[in-house]
Design a protein around this nucleic acid. Structure first.
Lengths: 236, 236
DNA sequence: AAAATTCAATTTGTATACAATAAAAAAATA
DNA sequence: TATTTTTTTATTGTATACAAATTGAATTTT
């Protein structure tokens, strides 16, 4: 009887994680205890414990007497993100190349397989979640409790950024994704070969690609039409 | 009336943090809900929320149906620690030099003043806590939410390692502390001058000093006495 | 006597009731 | 009518009661 509520609690936990990462719950969204409590057939006590834990991991923010909300994302955080990501992920991948166990490499290959499937047929959310799993496994491989907290925090926003700044209609962006997939393959190879240097470099390349994708979003290719009246001669 | 219990909750939170960092609660210690509940005049509900939050920040570990315990420390974690610390702290200090605000620099100088006082007259715990405050302020200066989680996790064990591997009787260790204090001064200077490169280098020096201190503990200077029967001539 | 099993005691987890705070709506004042 | 104040409603936080699980002792079995 209690086993069931324990399961529901875990489900809520995973559900909220997923919703945050896929932007089904956008940054800044307020969460209602009563509603979730009813939806997941959980009393408020365990529900609030889930909130606390998610807040600890960076998914939510708790405000005194004012409930939980999804962690915010601003242009400042975006800048902070690309400052920290190459470094932390570079370290994680180097350590992964050093410490990965065969069983973990198997799982990483499997995650990459899933990622490729999601690339073809899946939704944006599927893509983000399978990509996230890939990276989470590299974090597990690195096996350093002092780097993991920041790494996991980065992964949350990596997923969210991916969901925000991707338009499947854009050919450049589709191309970007297949490059990302190729990089995953190269990462697997570097880890399997215990090539720390290569893994570290791939991490940097991988994040630079993410940055490029955002630039494609922020600075789209110019329309191929003259703007008529707005076009004027350069002064002589 | 509720304001009071809110304060007790905060007190419990800070108290447990302090106990973990100063090793008054050693790694692996089990925490008893009932006892703490009575001691701090708090019901178990808010108490458990505190546990969750502390677990999220790395102070405690929660085990299903088996209560909370103080996060463990092993020789593996020590190795992980010195692998991650120079990198993360290097980044934090570089960013601190870049972003520190005058008000923060004032507080940092003040923290250093307190640290020096603790060095002279304070207990080991005072020393650890004032040193911790110094570093926490640098983290605040860096102002990057993606690096902070790992940084804070490192600071917990930095304090614990300091408490574990320091013997005030040892002249070398006392000397180490005054070097550490001088490094703090240099860090303040680098931050005030916005000298990122210097700040980054100082971070590495600072953590190398911590590592040296552990080596002094693990490999003490040989006793200055011949060991009698154990001394034997080298074979010709 | 050693190992396994059962039973009691302790401890952890969840639900519900109540208290306190914040938000919203209604009434009163300018 | 706009603004302030009061009242009502909704939401958050805490305490307590109960249910489930774990631990340890006592009993039984081999």
């Amino acid at each position: 009887m209690k086993d069931a509520s324990r399961r529901r609690k875990q489900e809520l936990f995973e559900h909220l994680k997923m919703c945050v990462m896929t932007q089904r719950l956008q940054p800044g969204t307020d969460l209602d205890e009563a509603t979730l409590s009813e939806e997941f057939k959980l009393s408020r006590t365990p529900l609030r414990e889930v909130f606390r834990q998610l807040a600890g991991e960076g998914y939510l923010e708790l405000r005194e007497n004012r409930g939980a909300r999804v962690s915010g994302m601003s242009y400042t955080t975006l800048r902070d993100f690309f400052l920290a990501a190459p470094m932390v992920y570079g370290a994680i991948l180097q350590l992964a190349a050093k410490n990965a166990k065969p069983e973990q490499i198997d799982r990483l290959k499997n995650a990459q397989k899933e990622f490729k499937i999601a690339l073809r047929s899946g939704s944006g959310a599927d893509r983000a979640m399978s990509n996230n799993l890939f990276h989470e496994i590299t974090g597990e491989m690195a096996d350093n409790i002092y780097l993991l907290p920041s790494f996991k925090r980065l992964l949350i926003d990596h997923a969210r950024i991916g969901m925000t700044f991707y338009r499947p209609q854009d050919a450049n962006m589709a191309e970007n994704l297949s490059v990302a997939s190729a990089q995953h393959d190269a990462i697997i190879a570097a880890i399997e070969a215990s090539n720390e240097a290569a893994a570290g470099q791939l991490a940097i390349d991988h994040w630079n690609l993410s940055r490029d994708q955002i630039e494609l979003f922020v600075t789209p290719a110019g329309l191929d039409l003259p703007l008529g009246s707005m076009a004027r001669k350069t002064p002589a």
